[in-house]
Design a binder for these strands. Sequence first.
DNA 1: GTCTATAGAGAGATAGAC
DNA 2: GTCTATCTCTCTATAGAC
Lengths: 224, 224
Amino acid sequence: MPETVHKQHVASNDGTAGRVRRAALAQILAAAEQVFAETGFNGATMAEIAEKAGLPKANLHYYFGTKEELYRAVLANTLEMWLTPISAICPAADPAKAIADYVWAKMEAARLRPYASKVFANEILHGAGHILDFLSNDLKTLVEEKAAVLDGWIAEGRMRPVDSKAFFFMIWAMTQHYADFDVQIRLVLGKRQLSRNDFAYFTAEVTRAVLRVAGLEPSTGEGV
Amino acid sequence: MPETVHKQHVASNDGTAGRVRRAALAQILAAAEQVFAETGFNGATMAEIAEKAGLPKANLHYYFGTKEELYRAVLANTLEMWLTPISAICPAADPAKAIADYVWAKMEAARLRPYASKVFANEILHGAGHILDFLSNDLKTLVEEKAAVLDGWIAEGRMRPVDSKAFFFMIWAMTQHYADFDVQIRLVLGKRQLSRNDFAYFTAEVTRAVLRVAGLEPSTGEGV
DNA sequence: GTCTATAGAGAGATAGAC
DNA sequence: GTCTATCTCTCTATAGAC
């Protein structure tokens, strides 16, 4: 019964247990995010998550009840991160700056929380069964709202005509690619790790590409 | 012992058994591609693949030995599809046409073989352990070769300056997104399926975006 | 609140009949 | 060459001591 919610036991005598609790929850969630990202829901084992969190396996069940519930908690964490940066896109903003800021925030998320991105990608790839509601309600509404902002800019001649929803798909695809497909990128480039500098370089490149699509590129005088 | 190669039993008396064999192999591979795509390597079960292929479970082991070997066979199929279309990019070609043809071929692959794309994505997402050699040898070489073609076009002023490898990452990300993240796209758009027409529309949109990045857009007179 | 020990289910693999 | 029946192992989940 994946739908039953596990009881939240709260220490009633003092603040120490609460602190222990919060620390344990944070450790478990961080470990779970990594393990789910690396091996998927089915490949992940509670034993491996417990080991990485430095706790006995039974404690995971004490805090989260089931593997399923732990997974949903990790996903919930991820979704928040996924949505936040899009707030840069608002009617009053300067189109070029707003879009560049959004791309920057998405690339930062790819760099700093690659596991979160991978958990999300894995969930979509396998049918998104746990977040169907989120996608068809929250995200759908948000995209419609933000696409309307782009359409407004286009109508005002402040941005070149594009399909505004496809434009978001493009940004998501390009930025998340640097988290989700990092292994491929590293191996093709022959690098052991993508450094902070590599990310700065690719962020500039992605930003340039996206702004060119929107007809907003700062003029470099290098055109054909 | 995932490295041991399962014996290939070949019928010696007549052609019928060979035909049965080929049919069985094709059925198993098609079923496996779908099941691995939908649930990942660990989530997939031999029982489910067998059911979808219309064969008893033991036959899968007869033909492929282990689940691991079956998975590698599916991956091998996929990689060929993955590489083929890039041949459009060659020095003698017209840049705009070559790039548009490549994008078109990748979008067709996303439309016609979404499971193959998902199996590949899933493999990369989880560390690419089965195709490290492919990525760091075959693919690396190919990308260097094709990036050199783009760099040549840029040097000749036939294309706007871009990082040629990041340009390929961009094309891969954008096109494969329509296979790998199709659930998200469908739910955000409120569509039950992406039709042939939807794909034609998005292919045009992706092509336009990519050509704008390369400074090769057929002039539409709509610029800002 | 925490942990050890174990029950119970499910999946990969195979023996052996046909 | 094909299939049924089964073995064995791994993993989730929990009971119960502390």
